[in-house]
Amino acid sequence: MVRAIAWRVAGVVPVLFLVTLVLFLLLRLAPGDAADLLVPDDASEAEILRIRERWGLDRPLLEQYFSFLLNLLKLDLGRSYRYGADVFELIASRVPATIELATLALLAASLIAIPLGILAALRKGTAVDGAVSVFAIAGVSTPTFWLGILLVLLFSAELHLLPSGGRLPYGVQLPERTGLHLVDAMLAGRFDLLGLIASQLILPVMTLAFSMVGIISRITRGAIIDVAQEEFITTSVAKGLTRGAIIRHHLLPNATVPITTILGLELGVLISGSIIVEVVFSWPGLGTLLYQSISVRDIPLVTGIVVTYTTLFILINVVIDVIYFIIDPRIRASQGA
């Protein structure tokens, strides 16, 4: 198992190589000159040349790429054009906000969608099944930015129940250790802050979760229905097991593999898919940072963020593979546990 995981992690290297190559070429082949953005409008030619030289933009593209790769090995992603700060540190300061949002959204979506999917499968063809279907389609087809704005209008502007954005209200201080606010508040013993932090999280989490409920509940429903048709379910009825025991011991465990797959994929999609939601809710995560860095052509920062997204995506897949190992003895056997 350790060997199999090591292989998966090693798979990051070629993927990152390809991703950075494509990204590097695209960003530099795009029309416009990054140096234009680094100088005032009235800068002289000499000044532009000096800036180019300072940021290494005058060197051949291939040379720039190789020095980027060499630096990447040292976790040095360069300096942001806009902030002047170290890209790695900028990203590191934003990653926890995105992870907090994405995992809570996935958790909320799973808690809603999996029971709904199970219910729909067990009541296949009834009004309950139909209602879950309609809810699922509504979730999939509602654009997140629209839902986000709608929720802000309703709960913040109209009802004044929840804040419209940000991670913490102005003036609230929280000692950061993990960067995950709920965790930090508990570590610091500031349980009084949990409610405040949660109220900031509710709207963005719900907006993201709603978009996933549809897919997760449909996959869960399909997985349960597929397993229900397996011969070993007939065997377990023939053994005289109760309906509850069959569902708990045979139906649900066998449906976990497809459900885990979709949860992993959705988490990957979430980490990058939260960009719009982060912008709508002024959530200071990677998504907002990417949005800002693209709009000012901050090439080192854009590159760094995309590399981070790719790495996170691959790591999530490794975790999913580990979960397969735990659930399914056949996968354990085929991977030489």
């Binding site: 397996e230 011969e231 070993f232 007939t234 065997t235 377990s236 009825v237 023939a238 053994k239 005289g240 097991l241 011991h249 045979h250 465990p253 066998n254 659930i327 399914d328 003895p329 056949r330």
Partner: peptide, 22 residues
Amino acid sequence: PLRGSEISMIFQEPMSSLDPLM
């Protein structure tokens, strides 16, 4: 209470009549 206790059954496909995860 009768199934598996008074009357039992075995099936045609042994490959699929056992739960693969147990």
